[in-house]
């Protein structure tokens, strides 16, 4: 039971860090469109992780359902924004410098794949359906 809580906290922290990295890359994109994209997607990841982390932290470890639901909601949004980086980082409209675009693209994939893994693991271990 403690494992679910610590796994959820670790997963959200990872999302927070990766989101913060993409935020930090915003000024380096080389074009205001790319900057706004990173500020927007990264901002959503950082915001949602920062809001949900203390909620999960303050819940009792034994209350797995009340931990799983907010954790999955947060991971859902972060993972989705990761998908956003995957499909938009290299799009011509944003004119992002190639090395930054590829960095965002790779971080997007990490967020997407880890997010999927974490969502499925929490769902499987707690019995909370994905559609939370």
């Amino acid at each position: 039971m403690v494992e679910v809580r610590s796994f959820a906290l670790a997963s959200l922290t990872l999302m927070l860090v990766l989101g913060a990295v993409t935020l930090a890359l915003a000024p380096l994109t080389g074009h205001y469109r790319g900057s706004y994209l990173a500020l927007f997607l990264g901002g959503v990841i950082v915001f949602v992780s920062a809001v949900y982390l203390p909620i999960i932290y303050l819940r009792k470890a034994s209350d797995v359902r009340r931990i799983a639901v907010p954790a999955m909601q947060s991971l859902w949004v972060s993972t989705s924004m990761g998908l956003g980086y995957v499909v938009t980082a290299l799009a011509p409209y944003f004119q992002i410098k190639l090395w930054v675009a590829y960095t965002l693209f790779i971080i997007g994939w990490i967020i997407l794949l880890y997010g999927l893994y974490a969502l499925l693991k929490i769902s499987k271990e707690t019995g909370v359906p994905l559609a939370v």
């Binding site: 959503v44 949004v77 924004m81």
Partner: peptide
């Protein structure tokens, strides 16, 4: 996982 980004 598409839904939140769909709005973005």
């Amino acid at each position: 996982i598409t839904v939140p980004f769909w709005y973005a």
